[in-house]
């Protein structure tokens, strides 16, 4: 997978990004099951899925735009609005829900001062809810960027979020749980 971190708010690399998107599309054109991986890579590159990118994907993969939109709208992983530098996703799947996921969400909302689907004014964090990262045994779980944090207590959310304000790379410290889950 292409290692590209979006520097949100900057348009500098737009042209390079489109070039990279075209390279991906060239690789996947005509292959069955191409849509979701292409969307994932595009989101990683652009930080979100702008309309122009989705339309390009639709044309190049020969998929109706309604279908591309349908897939993007179905999976909470995809976003069509720009996100903050770090994406916080709170699992409200069955296991997390019954073990207090909702309280964790409330605590994070309060801590960041934003609602679900919003981004903090300093563009550090975006907040979303999700359904199951596959970490049900250690519920409730949240994900910040690619890190899964498990057995999260509402009082601990400030501590977890603070790590991301200082850290440059997305590689987790000890407290970060298993990586790459839910992909």
């Amino acid at each position: 997978m292409i290692e590209m971190k979006c520097d949100c708010g900057s348009e500098i690399n737009e042209r390079d990004l489109v070039k990279q998107l075209d390279a991906i599309l060239d690789e996947y054109r005509g292959k069955p099951g191409a849509l979701i991986p292409v969307l994932q890579m595009s989101q990683k590159m652009f930080g979100y899925l702008p309309e122009s990118v989705l339309k390009r994907i639709s044309l190049e993969l020969g998929k109706p735009y309604s279908e591309v939109a349908g897939v993007v709208g179905f999976y909470s992983f995809f976003s069509t609005v720009p996100r903050g530098r770090h994406l916080v996703r709170v699992c409200l799947g069955t296991a997390c829900y019954v073990r207090g996921g909702k309280q964790v969400l409330e605590a994070i909302k309060k801590n960041l001062g934003i609602d679900v689907g919003e981004t903090t004014p300093d563009r550090n964090f975006s907040l979303e809810v999700a359904r199951c990262f596959g970490a049900c045994g250690l519920a409730p779980a949240i994900m910040v960027d690619d890190d899964v944090h498990q057995r999260v207590k509402p009082v601990k959310v400030g501590e977890i979020l603070n790590q991301y304000l200082t850290k440059k790379t997305k590689k987790g410290k000890k407290s970060a749980g298993k990586k790459g889950a839910g992909k």
């Binding site: 998929k63 109706p64 735009y65 309604s66 279908e67 939109a69 349908g70 709208g73 179905f74």
Partner: peptide, 21 residues
Amino acid sequence: AVGALFPQFRGFKTVIGPAFG
């Protein structure tokens, strides 16, 4: 082979319609 309509969104919010409802 027109593809104007497709299920959009999810769960109770699902609508059948053009891209992004």
